[in-house]
């Protein structure tokens, strides 16, 4: 699924509504790591796999209540790591670094105790440091489905500590891969773990 130019729009939408609803807004900032499944699997003599290494990731979100026990959230995340190529399981080469930016709208609600669930829809954009090889004609923005769990520990009237686990799924391809004869898109799953803090406006 490709959504060219959708990322700036989604990012703008994600940031815009926070101010007007300030009275009920909760801002959350977290830092963690994200692991990804392979972006490309191939076979040239041996099996080849291109996969981002574990990426330090920043998560930001702004949420507000939209119903009883339900909040709507606008999420941004950014992580960066090396793009590692392995051939038959052995390290083959490093294709430079690759940044991953996501923007999503999410719904979240309480589950049990201080645990809450979240589901999200959004877009993901890959930002390779070098536009060579399979990245030479860029990487289109793709649609993203996500889910997660958050544990929230109140620290004061406004502040709480947060620990979260995030999962998302998207399809990856590039124009260069398509031109090279790849059909379809690679299914990519990512899992992130993060801790941070949330601040509730009164």
């Amino acid at each position: 699924m490709r959504i060219p130019y959708a990322f700036p729009l989604a990012a703008a939408l994600a940031l815009a509504p926070a101010a007007p609803a300030a009275g009920q807004v909760r801002l959350t900032a977290m830092v963690g790591v994200t692991g990804s499944s392979a972006l490309v699997t191939d076979q040239i003599f041996e099996d080849i796999e291109l996969k981002p290494a574990l990426a330090p990731t920043f998560f930001l979100s702004a949420s507000l209540p939209v119903a009883t026990r339900l909040r709507a959230s606008l999420d941004l995340s950014y992580g960066s790591s090396s793009a590692d190529l392995t051939e038959s399981g052995q390290d083959a080469s490093d294709l430079g670094s690759i940044g991953v930016l996501t923007a999503a709208v999410a719904l979240e609600g309480p589950l049990v105790s201080r645990l809450s669930w979240r589901l999200s829809l959004g877009v993901i954009e890959y930002l390779p440091s070098e536009e060579t090889g399979l990245f030479s004609d860029g990487v289109p923005v793709a649609g993203l489905f996500g889910a997660g769990l958050d544990w929230r520990q109140p620290l004061s009237e406004r502040w709480s500590g947060v620990a979260g686990v995030r999962y998302d799924f998207h399809l990856f391809t590039t124009p260069t891969l398509e031109a090279a004869g790849f059909s379809g898109s690679q299914q990519v799953s990512r899992v992130g773990l993060a801790i941070g803090a949330a601040w509730d406006f009164q």
Binding site: V40, L70, G109, F169, H170, F182, G184, Q187
Partner: peptide, 23 residues
């Protein structure tokens, strides 16, 4: 509620996962 959104999300995930990459 979660009761309504979860099936919708699973349906969407299923649709997204139909494609299969072939080298």
């Amino acid at each position: 509620t979660a009761r309504h959104t979860l099936p919708l999300a699973l349906l969407l995930a299923g649709a997204l996962s139909c494609a299969e990459a072939t080298s």
